[in-house]
């Protein structure tokens, strides 16, 4: 009996020291390489950003971000496991290490950066919150929505902006909050609410799910800033840099005219900026734990930012969203990347 207790206590002590030691885990990049697959937190289904197609292949702007990371690490855009997460579960999944990177149209806010133990790496889509209503209501502005019932997804910045907007404009409303985006749009479709609110890009995507999409209009007001971007855990600056620079690489590639089609020819380009980007001069990739040709891998498999945008949410998609704020800074947009040097 005594031996049993002694063994139990010794075992317990071991378990505690082991769990304390686990705080010193290997870097995220090392874990991903060892696992040979990237775990990417993705939307449960938002057209244009992250949704599985009829064959079960994930498609979308956010999805391609993860594919670009996988391409840069493994030279294989398919070494990604997409883990669909609802709005309310997403950050917990990232904090607990269930996913390596969260690319799930999440808004970058101060609280999220400062107190959730995560950091946003940048903005891959500049968005703003809008409203959708039925045409037959005859509403032309969000200011006319006093007394309306509004359907929204809970655990989002949308829920907070909604409260702010109606309070600031002294309008009354009733909020009906659902845990999943599917339930939200279904309830709106069933007539539970007069208005549906989410990020403007999401409005166009969700409208496609309605029984009669043409009976609904998106109101002109954009009531908030919604910088959407990827986030990583706040304890691995090497991984943070890698994820951040994948986005910058794609923007720089677009700016320098490097596309999926011409990337092999561009390798011979005399332009020093292109040479540095594609790794024919210098070894910039190695500074973030990758190979010198990391950008070639990204562009070859996924394309530059503009190509990914047009294919998923722009003219090549059902959503047909204009580049607008998401255009390059050289064309009046907000997408701007620091130089590779």
């Amino acid at each position: 009996m005594k031996k049993f207790f002694a063994a139990a206590i010794a075992g317990l002590g071991l378990a505690v020291t082991a769990s304390a030691a686990s705080a010193q885990a290997p870097s995220t990049l090392a874990q991903v390489k060892q696992r040979n697959i990237l775990n990417c937190g993705s939307n449960t289904g938002l057209a244009g950003f992250g949704v599985p197609d009829a064959q079960g292949n994930w498609q979308g702007l956010d999805v391609e971000y993860c594919r670009a990371i996988a391409a840069a690490i493994f030279n294989d855009p398919n070494k990604v496991k997409f883990i669909p997460l609802s709005a309310k579960d997403r950050f917990t999944a990232l904090q607990s290490g269930e996913v390596d990177v969260l690319v799930r149209n999440s808004t970058w806010t101060m609280t999220r950066d400062a107190s959730l133990g995560i950091v946003f790496t940048g903005v891959n889509y500049y968005d703003g919150q809008g409203f959708m209503v039925r045409k037959k209501l005859g509403v032309t502005s969000a200011k006319q929505l006093s007394g309306a019932s509004v359907c929204t997804q809970q655990g989002t910045t949308t829920e907070l902006n909604l409260a702010d907007y109606f309070r600031a404009n002294n309008l009354k409303y009733e909020v009906v909050a659902f845990a999943s985006s599917d339930e939200t749009i279904k309830a709106y479709d069933a007539g539970r609410c007069d208005a549906f609110t989410t990020d403007a890009s999401g409005l166009y995507a969700e409208r496609l799910k309605l029984t009669a999409p043409d009976d609904h209009i998106v109101l002109p007001e954009i009531i908030s800033k919604e910088p959407l971007g990827p986030s990583v855990r706040n304890n691995d600056s090497g991984w943070f840099n890698l994820v951040k620079w994948v986005h910058y690489a794609m923007i720089n590639a677009e700016e320098l005219g490097v596309t999926k089609a011409n990337v092999d020819e561009m390798l011979k380009s005399p332009n020093p900026e292109i040479k540095r980007l594609l790794g024919t001069e210098g070894k910039f990739g190695e500074t973030i734990g990758l190979t010198p040709d990391w950008v070639v891998r990204i562009v070859k498999h996924v394309g530059n930012y503009g190509e990914s945008f047009e294919k998923n949410v722009g003219q090549g998609s059902l959503l047909k969203i204009a580049r607008g704020q998401n255009g390059l800074w050289t064309k009046g947009g907000l997408q701007y990347a620091p130089p590779v040097r």
Binding site: T92, T111, L116, G155, A177, A179, E183, A187
Partner: peptide, 24 residues
Amino acid sequence: AVAIGYPDLVQVFTGTVLNQTGQA
């Protein structure tokens, strides 16, 4: 209730509050 949008304890507190504060 969380599935059908009734604001019970889990929906309001373990849903929205958890998500806004991040203190799971």
